[in-house]
């Protein structure tokens, strides 16, 4: 944007640019080391385990979905709607006495519909993804308010409902809790799709040069549909995990994930020289946000200061990573 290219800056740019690729990793390591010394309870097995199973799993699954969408050059502001509607249908079906498996299918089906609506708006009506998913975000809010008398949460804490929730949130396989296994499956699935398949190459092409991708014969609408539906369904999985953990549906609870998911994905782009989203980068972004929040809590910062601290950190990391990048790229 500015025209200033000092010769001094230009000379030192080569090394700075290489260094900028490591800004996030350096920040992550620094943050972990800092909290290890500053917060006594941080580097304990129990704390790390809780951190991963409570905070990281939910955000990471949404962020994986966001990674696919941003990788394809789009953005999905409606992940909160997918989370909430999936959670709402899931809880309502459990309350109505359906079997757990059906309720899960119902929830994921609702999320699928959100993705389908996004895909319709983007492919058929040619609305840009930001505006299309913004519209869906508004509509999703209304749907939730209308079906819950303005936002009354549904709590299913009575013992008779416990079975399906426990089956999802409280079981474990070989000592690993089920939600963590689901996360690992999602990571492997998205990794294979994005980084080890033809689909992933097409998505990368769409993200880099949508017009070129279209002229080289990539079926853009079909791939965009898959991208947005995958993101919605992944968010739906988070919705069901969230509901199973807290045994309730709180309207508009999913909105909290939107900014963190976008933030984590873009922080993650800083590890690649081309500033492209990747599964590994996103996971580092999610971990960075989770560690910051947990560490700041442990050293006694309240929720409000945590938000300031995280905002400043994200600003600095992005500033380092983007500010040192080569111009005119």
């Amino acid at each position: 944007m500015t025209n200033q290219t000092d010769t001094a800056v230009r000379e030192s740019r080569f090394s700075l640019e290489a260094a900028s690729n490591y800004a996030v990793i350096v920040a992550f390591v620094a943050v972990v080391i800092f909290f290890t010394f500053a917060a006594p309870g941080f580097m304990t097995g129990e704390n790390i385990f809780n951190l991963i199973s409570n905070k990281v799993v939910l955000l990471a699954i949404v962020a994986l979905g966001m990674t696919i969408v941003i990788g394809a050059g789009g953005i999905d502001l409606s992940v909160g709607v997918s989370i909430d509607l999936s959670s709402m249908i899931f809880i309502m079906m459990i309350a109505a006495g359906y079997m757990g498996a059906f309720a899960v299918m119902g929830g994921l089906g609702a999320a699928f519909c959100v993705g389908l609506l996004n895909a319709f708006l983007i492919n058929k009506l040619k609305i840009n993804p930001f505006l299309a998913t913004l519209g869906v975000l508004f509509i999703g809010k209304s749907i939730q308010q209308l079906s819950t008398q303005g936002g009354v949460p549904i709590y299913l804490t009575r013992a008779e409902y416990a079975a399906p929730f426990d089956a999802i949130a409280r079981t474990s396989l070989l000592g690993i809790p089920t939600p963590m296994i689901i996360l690992v499956i999602c990571i492997i699935g998205v990794y294979l799709a994005l980084h080890r398949s033809v689909f992933g190459r097409y998505v990368a092409a769409l993200g880099a040069q949508a017009d070129v991708a279209r002229y080289s014969g990539i079926r853009v609408p079909m791939h965009m549909s898959i991208v947005f539906i995958s993101c919605a369904v992944l968010s739906g999985i988070t919705g069901i995990l969230l509901s199973s953990t807290v045994r309730s549906y709180v309207p508009l609870a999913g909105d909290a994930f939107l900014l963190d998911a976008i933030g984590a994905t873009f922080i993650g782009t800083a590890i690649s020289a081309e500033r492209r989203p990747s599964v590994l980068g996103t996971l580092i972004g999610v971990a960075l946000l989770a560690v910051m929040r947990n560490g700041l809590l442990l050293i006694g910062w309240n929720f409000f200061w945590q938000q300031v601290g995280i905002g400043v950190l994200v600003f600095l990391v992005l500033g380092l990573s983007f500010g040192l990048r080569k111009r005119g790229e």
């Binding site: 900014l259 200061w305 300031v308 995280i310 905002g311 400043v312 994200v314 600003f315």
Partner: peptide, 10 residues
């Protein structure tokens, strides 16, 4: 977005 977080936190 980052600035929004900072402002909201402050």
């Amino acid at each position: 977005l980052a600035v929004m977080n900072i402002a909201a936190g402050l």
